Computed example of a mutant assay.
Amino acid sequence: MMQDFNFANAEFDRQTGILDNLVAIITTTSAQDPANPVNISGRLLPIVIAGGQNTMAAAGIVLLAAHFEEYIRQQIEEYAKGVVISYNNLEINFREKLVDSYWRSAASKLSRIRPKGSSNWANVAQQTLNNLLAYPVNGNTS
């Protein structure tokens, strides 16, 4: 049985709220009305002129993307940890799919090792191959 995802769902809701707030801030700062200035903590928000509004919106989008990317990376990592913890209780078909995905991903790392340059490449390749085989052959999920 997989772990309870209530905590992950709560964190997703929290992160969604952060993203909503960032969107509101970007919208406010990039599309201001000089006739209706925005007051934040007793200070008027400077008006961003027309040429700067596009820059402000672009910077905001980069901020949103970076925040969201990091959040998704963390969620995937936590999900993977949950799968490993529950590995022995997973259906055999699902475990076989995990092995297939793992093999394709890990084998691509091995294929990027080039037998040139440093004479240490064979040691790196051997260690990578041993790590690659540890899970599907030996059942090592670490």
Rank of each mutant, 00 (worst) to 15 (best):
Gln32Tyr: 02
Val124Ile: 12
Ile72Gln: 10
Leu19Gln: 10
Leu19Tyr: 09
Leu129Ser: 10
Gly42Val: 03
Ala58Val: 07
Ala58Asn: 11
His67Ala: 11
Asp33Ile: 05
Gly51Leu: 04
Ile76Val: 15
Pro34Asn: 04
Arg95Ile: 05
Asn140Leu: 07
Ala106His: 10
Leu133Val: 03
Asn21Thr: 12
Ser111Asp: 13
Met1Asn: 05
Ile26Ser: 07
Ala122Asp: 03
Ala31Gln: 13
Gly60Arg: 04
Ser105Leu: 12
Asn138Glu: 15
Gln127Arg: 12
Ala8Asn: 07
Ser108Gly: 03
Ala134Asn: 12
Asn120Ser: 09
Asn89Pro: 00
Trp121Leu: 06
Thr128Ile: 01
Ala122Gly: 00
Gln15Glu: 15
Met2Tyr: 11
Thr55Lys: 04
Ser142His: 09
Ala31Asp: 14
Ile85Leu: 09
Ser86Phe: 01
Tyr135Pro: 03
Gln126Val: 08
Trp103Asn: 06
Gln32Gly: 06
Ala134Ser: 15
Asn54Ser: 05
Gln53Val: 01
Arg114Cys: 00
Val84Ile: 15
Lys116Leu: 01
Leu90Asp: 04
Leu45Val: 14
Arg43Phe: 05
Leu110Thr: 04
Ala106Cys: 06
Asn36Arg: 13
Arg104Val: 02
Val137His: 08
Asn88His: 10
Asn39Arg: 09
Arg112Asp: 08
Trp121Gly: 05
